[in-house]
Amino acid sequence: MSAHAEHVNGELPHEPEKATLEGRNKVLGFWLFLGGEAVLFGTLFATFLALRHQNNEGPTAAELFSLPITAAATLILLVSSLTSVFAIQAMHRHNLEKLKLWLIVTVVLGLGFLGLEIYEFYEYVAHESFDMKTSAFSSSFYTLVGFHGAHVAFGVVWISLLIAQLFKKGLTFVTAPKVYVSAMYWHFIDVVWVFIFSVVYLLGKVG
């Protein structure tokens, strides 16, 4: 296995992330982690759905949420999921430059999403007097959406570090599974966001 790590770019197989047992185990183990993440977010969604009408005379979901901001955040995250697909396709073609480029685009879009979410939370706290302590609705809202935002922030840091490692070490049997797994994580974050914009924002507007 360690001998494989010394291979140079040109000798990589089509799917370098699955070329070693270590790489395959990493991908399989990451799926188990994502199953656990699904349970984690499931419990947060359950809490939110149970408490979403308990606004304690504070702002309600329908008063608070803005569809254009939610739509913009959704579009940014969806595009970033597509760019990480392109990154993995570039990796399968052993095109290191394009791989790094698409990962950088993904990170920039992730930062854009985070900026939008920070702006949104700031508006709620500063101008709508809607903070963590306002109501059961506000607590469950900030916990669920904030937890997703924290996942995005973690993904941005993680993928940035992987880009730095790709600059230093290039594409090898060791770096390829890491990149593949980070792209899986990023898709999962987008999948969670699909439920958040549907269940939290759009359902909040419906009532």
């Binding site: 399989l28 799926w31 994502l34 499931g42 359950a46 759905l49």
Partner: peptide, 22 residues
């Protein structure tokens, strides 16, 4: 197959929590 088993397991527990809450 195993990733699908993991995800179905995760979504099953998640939806049990959500149905309980609802």
């Amino acid at each position: 197959l195993m990733p699908i088993v993991f995800m179905i397991g995760g979504f099953f527990v998640a939806s049990t929590c959500i149905i309980m809450a609802l």
